[in-house]
Simulated scan of single mutants.
Amino acid sequence: MKIKAEQLAQQLKKQLLPVYLLHGDEPLLIQECADHVRRACKAQGFGDRDIIHVENNFTGEELYASNQSISLFADRKIIELRMPTGKPGTAGSKALVDYVANPSPDNVLLIICGKIESASQRSKWFKTVEAAGASVQLWPINARDLPRWIEQRLRALGMQANPDAIELLADRVEGNLLAASQEIHKLQLYAEQETITVETVMAAVADSARYNIFGLIDSCLEGDTLSALKMLQGLKSEGNQVFAILPLFTRELRNLYACAQQIGDGHGIDRVLQNQRIWDSRKRITKIALQKLSLSRITRLIQLANDIDQSAKGMSKANSWDLLEQLITLMTGRELAIAL
């Protein structure tokens, strides 16, 4: 069945389904919904978790093995299938259909995807999973609704803000919900039980870290390799973690990939940027990036981002900071042999 994000918590209280499919292009909302499922499972005795990363050569063998294996630490477990592309492939699709046909009562399958296109939502695996459990599609928050979303977040944390302050905060984060969430939590240090005003937001902005992730991404899009690498070192020295930085790069690369695909199909760049909901203030640097990054280069960057994700989670011996430095160098349009 299809349910909305705001219905998920209530559904989990009523019944724990054998499979949950979360898909969309909003990392923060995906993360929060996944946390809802994990907490509900934990409350019902699912004390272990297997994580499976779906790549191009996914055959489903890991899913079969995880479903049949007995955990050493708990009687029940979550099988977490992370599939950024939303495309399991032929063998993977069959594995998902087979799993849903005979799910283990001791397991809950949590499938986490990026954006799944309409055509893929009509596929057999998607329909089968949705019929057996629940699918939640996380829609982007558009510019018109973002102020209301921010206000709701502030209220949930016991804060209130005047309309001008909310508008300023919405302009600052430019539609990035993860950035908005970070800014809202930062405002807790300044609010002191008072209504948040424009002055409060400005004070928080003035006290921001010297090196910030958004400035780093902008430097990458503009092709400023030296500035980008310098910002990366600054973020590292300030104690930031790779797994906190990477999601914003992944989001940006997916947008660039979608834009490059449409441009390759013959669509004008201005229409493409509009279709992808690129904010007016970011259209200039996005155009710069698309002029220097080919579709194959962007694909290579997405693959590298996946390598960084696995490294940051301890699934490979590679140094995640070194890999992130390589990603930034390539994203600015340089080659590693020249820049490093």
Results as ranks from 00 to 15, higher is better:
Lys2Arg: 14
Ile3Gly: 12
Lys4Pro: 02
Lys4Tyr: 15
Glu6Thr: 09
Gln7Val: 07
Gln11Met: 07
Gln11His: 06
Leu22Gly: 01
His23Tyr: 11
His23Ile: 01
His23Phe: 03
Gly24Leu: 07
Glu26Gln: 04
Leu28Asn: 08
Glu32Gln: 14
Arg39Asp: 10
Ala40Gln: 02
Lys42His: 15
Phe46His: 12
Arg49Asn: 11
Ile51Arg: 14
Ile52Gln: 04
Asn57Leu: 13
Thr59Lys: 10
Glu61Gly: 02
Leu63Asn: 00
Leu63Gly: 00
Ala65Gly: 06
Ser66His: 07
Ile70Gly: 08
Leu72Val: 13
Arg76Glu: 06
Leu81Tyr: 02
Met83Arg: 07
Met83Gln: 02
Pro88Asn: 06
Thr90Ser: 12
Thr90Pro: 00
Ala91Met: 08
Gly92Leu: 00
Ala95Asn: 04
Val100Lys: 07
Ala101Gln: 13
Ser104Lys: 00
Ser104Gly: 01
Pro105Ile: 10
Pro105Asn: 05
Asp106Glu: 08
Val108Trp: 03
Ile112Pro: 00
Gly114Ala: 03
Ile116Thr: 03
Ile116Cys: 01
Glu117Arg: 00
Gln121Val: 03
Ser123Ala: 08
Phe126Gly: 04
Lys127Arg: 11
Val129Ser: 01
Glu130Lys: 14
Ala131Leu: 11
Ala132Gly: 15
Ala132Ser: 12
Ser135Asn: 09
Trp139Arg: 14
Trp139Cys: 06
Pro140Asn: 07
Asn142Leu: 11
Asn142Arg: 08
Ala143Met: 05
Arg144Gly: 03
Ile150Asn: 06
Gln152Thr: 13
Arg153Val: 09
Arg153Ala: 13
Arg155Trp: 12
Leu157Ser: 07
Leu157Glu: 12
Met159Ala: 13
Asn162Asp: 14
Asn162Ile: 10
Asn162Ser: 07
Glu167Leu: 13
Asp171Asn: 15
Arg172Ala: 13
Glu174Arg: 13
Ala179Trp: 02
Ser181Ile: 09
Gln182Arg: 13
Gln182Lys: 10
Ile184Cys: 09
Tyr190Arg: 08
Ala191Ile: 06
Glu192Ser: 14
Thr197Ala: 08
Glu199Leu: 10
Met202Asp: 09
Ala203Phe: 14
Tyr211Trp: 11
Ile213Tyr: 03
Glu222Ala: 14
Gly223Phe: 02
Ser227Gln: 04
Lys236Trp: 01
Lys236Tyr: 09
Ser237Met: 10
Gly239Asn: 10
Gln241Cys: 05
Val242Pro: 13
Phe243Cys: 06
Ala244Ser: 12
Leu248Val: 14
Ala260Pro: 00
Gln261Cys: 12
Gln262Phe: 05
Gly266Val: 05
Gly268Val: 08
Ile269Pro: 00
Asp270Tyr: 11
Arg271Val: 08
Val272Tyr: 09
Asn275Asp: 15
Asn275Cys: 04
Asn275Phe: 02
Gln276Val: 05
Asp280Trp: 04
Arg284Cys: 04
Thr286Phe: 01
Thr286Glu: 00
Ile288Glu: 12
Ser294Cys: 06
Thr299Ile: 01
Arg300Ile: 02
Ala305Ser: 14
Asp307Arg: 15
Asp307Cys: 11
Lys313His: 15
Ser316Pro: 05
Ala318Trp: 12
Asn319Gln: 12
Ser320Gly: 10
Leu324His: 06
Leu324Cys: 07
Gln326His: 14
Leu327Met: 09
Met331Cys: 09
Thr332Phe: 07
Gly333Asn: 02
Glu335Trp: 11
Leu340Tyr: 08
